[in-house]
Amino acid sequence: MLPPRDPDQILKARGAAHRPAGRFEPYRAVREDDGWDSPPDQTLLRTDVTTETPRRIITRNDSPDVPFDRSVNPYRGCEHGCIYCFARPTHAYLGLSPGLDFETRITAKLDAARLLEAEIARPGYAVAPIAFGTNTDPYQPVEARLGIMRACLQVMHDWNHPLSIVTRGRTILRDLDLIGAMAARGRVFVGISLTTLDAGLARQMEPRAPAPTTRLKMIRALADAGVRVRVMLSPMIPALTDHEIEALLSAARDAGAATASMIPIRLPHEVAPLFRDWLDRHHPGRAAHVMSRIQAMRGGRDNDPRFGHRMRGEGPEADLMHQRFRLARRRLGYDRESPPLDASRFAPPPRAGDQLALF
């Protein structure tokens, strides 16, 4: 059960409408009107950005469901406010709400580039591609002002370190000079998330993310710069967006995408009640049907967290969705996979005073 909406706050372009406590909190706060207070003065809820200095910036994982073993996320929380975001529950580790706090209380890691360089410079570091944007978007709106991702890219460029980027943020085009230079040497590829071509639905689901047409223009600009782009139909929502699979793949292919992937919607922990509430607010007539079809892919539950199942789903509903995706991908001429990124030139950048190489 979600708490009542805060009547003091005006919400503009937000995915969630509530601030439920995280699953680790021992108490829940509930507002009660005792009749003595005067009507509240409503204020617009704005985004608050704080900073932190972590000890390390590279996160390691051994999940069999993802194709990388290390990642960097310059931000905690994401102002894009995508209602379905599987990363929302991570705000609970900070004592914050996976609801409105996740999209309005952002933490920026200002020293990310310095920490990144220190870690890859350590003796014995074994180079392998680093994935950026695996949890929250490295090109969310605040990046245009802070430039943390830009600084990290400079480090990766200078050290000839391979990387991948997942985003839906238009600010990535600011960094085409660095990304294009790395792409020319086979050291980067970019994944662009594209969930719907319906601009109205996109505004509801992803209120502060670029419109679908803008994302297609991003794919075109990256492809024209020589960057290998993967279009990511993630998440795909049955009875809401799954009818667009073929159209999404066709539009992205026309824009220059070389590869494609798809993941059915996941609703871990606090995401499920937030998504249900969003459906009731924006699509009440189809809310029950959408949830029943999601549960048909998840063993009768809102979410199935098992390795090997969480990214694919199971049963006829999931099988049909994946079959449609595979057939459309093949018909449109997408490559099945991207070639491996080149890590052979990884080395410290030259510094002032270094001895020149003989050859």
Rank of each mutant, 00 (worst) to 15 (best):
I58G: 02
T90S: 10
R345A: 11
Y27G: 09
R174C: 08
V142P: 02
M291L: 15
L115E: 04
I219S: 05
A87L: 01
Y27A: 13
L356F: 09
A21Y: 03
P3W: 00
P26K: 09
R345C: 11
A357P: 06
T241D: 01
G81K: 00
M291V: 13
I192M: 06
R228L: 15
H80F: 13
L96K: 09
P54V: 07
R220A: 15
N303F: 15
A223K: 06
T259R: 13
V190R: 03
Q295K: 15
D304F: 07
R23V: 08
V290S: 06
S234A: 14
A225R: 12
S261E: 10
T107A: 12
L44V: 14
A87H: 01
M1Y: 07
D69G: 15
L240G: 05
V227F: 01
Q140V: 11
E206F: 03
A131S: 11
T167L: 07
R145I: 09
A29T: 13
V188G: 04
D335Y: 00
D62H: 14
V290R: 08
S63Q: 09
S250T: 14
L115F: 04
A252Q: 02
V166D: 03
P162R: 10
A121T: 09
R187M: 04
D254C: 07
D69F: 01
P26A: 13
T43L: 03
G180I: 10
P74R: 06
A29Y: 06
V155T: 08
I245K: 05
P264I: 11
M232H: 11
N135Q: 13
D111K: 14
R228H: 15
L358N: 12
V30Y: 06
N303C: 10
N303A: 10
T171D: 12
R5P: 00
D304S: 06
D354S: 05
R286T: 14
E25Q: 15
G124L: 01
R105M: 10
G200H: 05
E119P: 03
R23H: 08
I172F: 01
D224H: 13
L222W: 08
P141N: 02
R203H: 06
R326T: 06
R330A: 15
I148H: 03
V155Q: 02
M297C: 03
T241Y: 00
A343G: 13
P349G: 00
R306M: 14
A184C: 05
V49I: 12
R266P: 10
R301N: 11
L248W: 04
R345G: 08
R215F: 03
I106V: 12
V166R: 13
W278G: 07
S71T: 14
R14K: 15
T53Y: 00
M236K: 09
R55C: 11
F24W: 13
N61V: 15
R276A: 15
T195E: 09
A144Q: 12
L153N: 01
V166M: 14
A247R: 09
A223H: 07
V72P: 08
H282L: 01
A357Q: 02
I179E: 02
E117P: 11
Q355H: 00
G315R: 09
M297T: 03
D242Q: 11
L249D: 05
D277H: 14
V127M: 04
D8P: 01
E79G: 07
L197K: 04
I192Y: 02
E79C: 04
Q204W: 00
